[in-house]
């Protein structure tokens, strides 16, 4: 959501600032627009995920025993490790933003690398979790076949696993998109596009990444822990 058109280092005079797009009067206006735009985008993300959370709560309401039984088959440890990993990545991302606020591009790049690393660990754990579910036939909807693998879950567990895959899957897609954005930011930071007065793109990337974390903060207890 950044509007930078040129790639030269920041300049103090707004009149000739190459980071200032033609239709804005000041950098302040441009930055404020970008941030408001990002917050509105986050609002749409929250509302989109809320549909899945509502589906989950209604599933719990309609089939409480089945949900309790089915969720025992999710690995608490995998979920827990991923929670710690994702929280850590949020931390490093926040430090990255702090670094560029202080004008330290080197540290920003380091923090981006650490964040990307955490994101990758998250996806790897997710991969092992998913492949275990695939092996056990705990698949969504009509592909559900866990009973053929010796797992008897009473009720309609195919709905639970459908919701599980949808929620974690959509979240996973957001993680992957976040990783791609951070990689791009890493490259741009290397080109010297960011500075202490021009870092709204980094800040917005951070906001997006924290939202991904926020969603997980609710997903983890609801899917893995709650009885």
């Amino acid at each position: 959501m950044s509007n930078e058109h040129a790639h030269a280092p920041a300049h103090d005079d707004d009149e000739h600032n190459p980071h200032l797009a033609h239709h804005f009067d000041t950098m302040g206006q441009q930055t404020a627009s970008a941030k408001l735009g990002m917050w509105l985008f986050l609002a749409t993300e929250i509302l989109m995920f809320s549909g899945l959370f509502l589906a989950y709560f209604i599933l719990r309401m309609l089939y409480p025993e089945m949900v309790l039984e089915a969720h025992e088959h999710l690995s608490k440890w995998a979920g827990g490790i991923n929670t710690v990993v994702l929280l850590t990545s949020s931390y490093t991302m926040a430090l990255g933003v702090r670094s560029i606020q202080l004008g330290d591009v080197k540290k920003l790049r380091l923090m981006l690398v650490l964040t990307i690393l955490c994101g990758c660990i998250f996806m790897v754990v997710k991969y092992f979790e998913y492949s275990a579910k695939f092996e056990h036939g705990m698949l969504p909807g009509k592909f559900y076949s866990a009973h053929l693998h010796g797992y008897e879950i009473d009720g309609l567990p195919h709905i639970f696993f459908g919701v599980y895959f949808l929620m974690t899957g959509l979240h996973g897609v957001h993680v992957v998109i976040g990783l791609a954005i951070m990689l791009w930011m890493f490259v741009r930071a290397g080109r010297g596009e960011f500075g202490a007065k021009n870092y709204v793109a980094i800040e917005n990337t951070g906001l997006y990444w924290h939202l991904v974390d926020l969603v997980w903060i609710f997903l983890f207890p609801l899917l893995y822990l709650v009885k």
């Binding site: 989109m48 909807g141 709905i159 459908g162 919701v163 959509l170």
Partner: peptide, 20 residues
């Protein structure tokens, strides 16, 4: 955004039959 997730759920419901 709620329309987006509704239609996504509908598409998944139709293709995978998740039962929501």
């Amino acid at each position: 955004p709620v329309l987006a997730i509704t239609l996504l759920l509908l598409i998944i419901e139709r293709s995978l039959g998740i039962g929501i």
